[in-house]
């Protein structure tokens, strides 16, 4: 497994990766609280981007409703913690199956009845919207007036209950991002990765060579949903408040897919690079504008739009394939 992980990776890529990881590990001791929060947001999008990329980038199934899995994970773990005092680490055991069930229902309906392409994407939006409206009336978790986790000032971080300082959350999301990267790498080099690739390239042809396309598309949805629900748990315990109107909103689903699109759909490192570029640049711009005393609401969204426009026109395969070429690192199948 470890051999498979590093097989065929150029030394230069390993060196770059090690350098980046070292920098990220050291970062909390160097940067201030504001920058640490920015880094947490970056890694959060790097993680969710990687999870989404499994479905779209690897298996070619466009989901525009990933907020659903974030929300299901967030609400499940938060409800267990608030109502029963159960640690989110135990809550995971309920959150993942619930998110997977949501994904499996969508996948089953779509793939069984051959709903593909744009119609599949619409189905994913519809389910996220169902959840938004449903949770608005789900009073056990606060309904439309929101669901709150108890907040207090913590002298020491309590990792078991995920209560504590930003530094703990930073290392947690960093670990999740690295783990997701390892999982994606192993998937891409295994047989399942090849099957996904065939399905993404040409589903009819994949079927003609005997690939059980239904099963492998289901695997992609289930994996992606399960991984995304973990991001939801992180979201709930980091922000401490959940509103259906925010958590399940379609703009959450869209934000989540920007990083992999800008970085490079279907690539391994694209979602991570995309998250750094997008959040990094927009925060920089925000800071500069703020320095001039300009505070325009919605400027971030406009900026995201411009980034997307730039990438689609100039680098339609994303920024990472181009950067990789410049660095002399060739990533297969990008």
């Amino acid at each position: 497994m470890i051999g498979q992980m590093f097989e065929g990776v150029p030394a230069r890529a390993l060196a770059c990766g090690a350098l980046l990881l070292a920098a990220l590990l050291a970062a909390p001791y160097v940067v201030n609280d504001y920058l640490l929060t920015v880094l947490i947001i970056i890694l959060y999008y790097a993680y969710t981007g990687q999870a989404w990329n499994i479905m779209m980038g690897f298996a070619g199934q466009l989901s525009l409703g990933h907020a659903l899995y974030v929300g299901l994970g967030a609400y499940t773990a938060a409800a267990f913690y608030v109502h029963f005092g159960i640690s989110p680490w135990i809550g995971i055991l309920a959150a993942i199956p619930i998110a997977i069930a949501g994904g499996a229902i969508i996948g089953f309906l779509a793939f069984r009845f051959r709903v593909g392409g744009v119609y599949f994407a619409i189905l994913t939006i519809a389910f996220a919207e169902f959840a938004r409206v449903g949770f608005d009336h789900f009073n056990w978790v606060g309904g439309s007036s929101g669901f709150f986790l108890p907040v207090a000032n913590y002298a020491v971080s309590d990792l078991w209950n995920l209560r504590g300082k930003p530094m703990m959350f930073y290392y947690l999301i960093l670990a999740m991002t690295v783990l997701a990267f390892v999982i994606c790498r192993l998937l891409l080099t295994s047989r399942i990765g090849y099957f996904w690739l065939a399905i993404r390239e040409d589903e009819e042809a994949a079927r003609a060579i005997g690939i059980d396309t239904f099963r492998y598309k289901m695997y992609a949805v289930i994996l992606s949903a399960g991984m995304t629900s973990l991001a939801g748990i992180f979201f709930a315990f980091f922000y401490n408040n959940l509103f259906p109107e925010q958590v399940f909103h379609i703009s959450r689903s869209i934000e989540l897919i920007l990083a992999p699109i800008i970085g490079g759909v279907g690539t391994l490192f694209g979602p991570i690079l995309g998250a750094f570029l997008l959040t990094g640049l927009s925060e920089t711009m925000h800071a500069i504008l703020y320095g001039f005393g300009i505070d325009i609401p919605g400027v971030k969204q406009v900026f995201y739009g411009l980034c997307l426009l730039f990438v689609v026109i100039v680098l339609p395969h994303g920024v990472w394939p181009w950067v990789a070429r410049v660095l002399g690192i060739k990533e297969r199948r990008s």
């Binding site: 690739l197 065939a198 390239e201 040409d202 042809a205 003609a208």
Partner: peptide
């Protein structure tokens, strides 16, 4: 086995 209509190869592979 089947060789489908329209030469369905995987173009980018």
């Amino acid at each position: 086995g089947q060789v489908a209509e329209g030469r369905q190869v995987f173009p980018s592979l």
